[in-house]
Nucleic acid binder design. Structure first.
Lengths: 199, 199
DNA sequence: GAATAGATTAACTAAATGGTTAAAAAAAAT
DNA sequence: ATTTTTTTTAACCATTTAGTTAATCTATTC
């Protein structure tokens, strides 16, 4: 790999921070992961806090604005929601530690979240609930879309965050079987949400 | 409070560990919280690891075997499930940081989980899925009960774990409104699960 | 090709942290 | 009352950790 030193540091920090969190990560470990002297991390990023913020901002933005991508197509709102569920499970499967990492760091220091919301403009978060509102528009018994969003995200994220627990209890610690289970969830979650929205 | 020194340490450790996790917690902080000298923690519990295990074991057992309580009554399986949902939301509301704490610690060191499962006997975890199996028994299109368990737990836990995020985005940081939202979820989650089980 | 600026390293510092110890204080036993 | 045991404390120790520094190495400029 011929990426620049700064990129190497950034990538190494990303891996370590996601795995161990801001407090659990060690600057020396990041330096080792990047294959260089620890002083270089400070040379390029000045402090651990700085390095962490740079990494966290990107990770958060990527995971949070994922909805946008599915928006720009000619399918119906309901179909868009189905595509979103498929894509989001794939996204988490490719980054299984990220959602828990985000939740932990926001709980640890909610101030970071505030500044990020302001920077990115406060709208993108509302997209999903607007979606659901549109789908429900012809329905008589409208449910607060926030309940649906929270239920949906819970159903998507929990099987990844609780994996060690669930895999041991319900799958006899068979990782292969659990992976299959995770992919099955695409259909399950879509069914559940549809049934609930359409009454 | 006239509880013994050992109890004071235990209670203080419980509070701090839940809030900061095993690695984030400081022995000095626990000593301060308990109002005594740090050396006493070692006098009574020998090491941080020991103290943590004592605390974690109890917390885990309490949260995990909560199902048993709702079992011993004369209502139908479906009704029992509804009672479970109500009780579990109340339990988490009274201990909002606990589920995330458990998930984090199990991810950090899955070995602890294994030893605990063996100690407590491996059955209690299966109860909930047996429940669901019974409810579905008269239904044509049976769904793997594990999918329902995971969906249910995700819907119950996520609104608490993701609170800072969700409250800010969807509730304009109004804690009061979010508390109401959490209690509304009792009805919402029950409805969702019922609709899904009954087809 | 010497001078200059930027990149990299090894060695160091100061603060924090889990754990220890020896002595003092309190309680129990004689 | 005095000894003995248990509980509690202040001071200390060894290790870890984020961050610094001065020196070296490397590339660029003149």
């Amino acid at each position: 790999m011929d990426s620049s030193t700064e990129e190497k540091i950034y990538d190494a920090a990303r891996r370590i921070f996601i795995l161990k969190g801001m407090e659990g990560a060690r600057m020396q470990e990041i330096a080792d992961e990047a294959g260089m002297n620890k002083a270089l991390l400070h040379y390029y990023f000045r402090s651990k806090e700085n390095l962490f913020k740079a990494v966290f901002k990107d990770i958060f933005a990527k995971f949070f604005s994922r909805v946008k991508g599915t928006l720009n197509s000619d399918i119906t709102a309901k179909e868009k929601l189905m595509v979103f569920i498929d894509n989001y499970i794939d996204l988490i499967a490719a980054n299984p530690y990220v959602p828990q990492f985000i939740i932990n760091e926001i709980n640890r220091d909610p101030k970071v979240l505030k500044s990020m919301m302001l920077e990115s403009g406060a709208e993108p978060q509302m997209i999903l609930s607007m979606f659901l509102n549109e789908i429900q528009s012809n329905n008589a018994s409208k449910i607060d879309p926030r309940h649906i969003v929270v239920s949906l995200l819970g159903m998507l994220i929990f099987p990844f965050a609780g994996r060690p627990l669930l895999q041991m209890i319900y799958f006899n610690d068979d990782a292969q079987a659990y992976n299959q289970f995770l992919m099955e969830r695409k259909i399950i979650v879509k069914n559940m949400i549809l049934k609930f929205i359409e009454g």
